[in-house]
Design a protein around this nucleic acid. Structure first.
Lengths: 118, 118
DNA sequence: CAAACATATGATCATCTGTTCATATGTAAT
DNA sequence: ATTACATATGAACAGATGATCATATGTTTG
């Protein structure tokens, strides 16, 4: 790797700004968690599941049928969504209903939609 | 794969809701684009770059130094961010400054942070 | 308790992703 | 023009990811 010190010290930005940025950065753990959260949104299947749950809570087999995918695939993804605390579930007899856990989900997806619609 | 029709028709949800959900779903292309957008946020390096740019526009080598990563790695990721229209850049002599393109970036990351802080 | 059903889970495999390394491009200065 | 510097890019490789398949778990009903 080559040296890059010259660039930064001479003309790119003021050292105070570099210092300030370092102080303002969230800690590594928060950044990691944040990236993990967005990874969960970064998959078409999971996004579609979330959209389905916007309308109403729903059981696994309904989601699978709506999205035309296998029960197993949906179940695996619901697990990911649950771990990220984006959905919750409740049992009623044999069937398990999933629902949106949080209103951040709507906001985040809404902002994302606004961005791509530009 | 086993049959799942019985479940849904009998007790899971009302058919009207299933119909309604299908109508409310954005089209495939929008869902794909949305997932692609969130994928961009779903990486620690890119999140860190965005946080750095919150404070001030900055050149590639500064970002590389701040994040303690190679110039090449940063350049590759800036390319991804640019394609997603999350950052823009301008040339000034030899150096190229990158900056946040959009205020959705702050909102989306802000909401993400709120979510994980719970 | 045995059978049927709804869901969960572990292993596997093909595909995607991010970093590195080497090198190319573009700009400025001598 | 030649050299130095800032950035970009392509190939390659290791690690992560998502669907599938087979099977396990947990619940209800006869």
């Amino acid at each position: 790797m080559q040296e890059r010190i010259e660039c930064c010290e001479e003309h790119c930005v003021h050292p105070e700004i570099l210092e300030h940025v370092k102080l303002e950065m969230p800690d590594e753990e928060a950044l990691y968690d944040l990236a993990e959260l967005f990874k969960v949104f970064g998959d078409t299947t999971r996004i579609r599941i979330l959209y389905v749950l916007f309308e109403s809570e729903m059981c696994v087999c309904d989601i699978a049928e709506l999205l035309n995918m296998s029960q197993s695939a949906i179940s695996h993804q619901l697990r990911v969504l649950k771990q990220a605390k984006l959905v919750g579930n409740r049992r009623e007899g044999k069937t398990i209903y999933y629902f949106l856990a949080d209103d951040h989900v709507r906001t985040i997806i809404g902002q994302g939609m606004e961005h791509i619609e530009e």
